[in-house]
Amino acid sequence: MALPLPPGLTPAEVAFLCEMEMVTIVPRQRLDGLELLGGSIPPLQPPRRTDIPLWLALLLKRQNRANIVPPPWLLPASLANILDVETEMTEAFSSPPPLPPSAKGSEPISPPFQPSCTADASAHALPYHWLEVGEVLLDAASDDFEEPDLVRRLIRDIREVRLSKLRAGVEVLDAGGGVQMNGVGGLEVAEGRAFIGGVIDNLRKLGASKEQTRKEREAEEERNGYSGAGADDYDDDMEL
């Protein structure tokens, strides 16, 4: 093992990736459009709302040149709603934001490239980077929230509920079973990867001999099936 890091992304790496998300800002100063490798940034004209990447928004916010508009799902009312849904659904996670209807002829856009943290995002669903974006915004732009403490508390609550669901999921893991993991966020995956992967690996080892027996039996049955005559099959089955 060359790197001492476990497989998968570390929380800091996930948070770095989430800075690619688009957020809505209200600029306080004019800024000409920027042509960057990652795409062009439109010219900023106060007080017109503009969508820019989170990293740039954070930079402008720190220099006090812009205010960040929290995405609709980060408002206390929507978070409280989502928390209710999460608490009621004991099996699955609340669904991720719906995909926009794709324009004809173009590829459909899915979460990493779909703007999910802008001001016109869905208010009833948590996007992939919800936890990271939420924490980063609360840290850097808490004065743009009306009730930052309430939002922080709600985020913690939702996180706890979802984590306990992720943990409880191991009980239903089995050869044929699975955990419904739709809507699990990036940071949650980074946190739970070691545990879920480890459990599955160990269960696979424990079940290996049983699986082997089952396969042998199936192969046996298949052979008997191909051998033809029905009466013989019965005899063979009796011996088993």
Binding site: R167, E171, A208
Partner: peptide, 28 residues
């Protein structure tokens, strides 16, 4: 696991799997 390779004990296999799951949850 090694013993299950040598002996065919479905019941033991199920029991170990169940125990592991329950303990894993507590452990988490």
């Amino acid at each position: 696991t090694r013993m299950l390779d040598l002996f065919e004990e479905e019941e033991l296999s199920d029991l170990l799997t169940e125990s592991f799951k329950l303990r894993a949850k507590e452990l988490a």
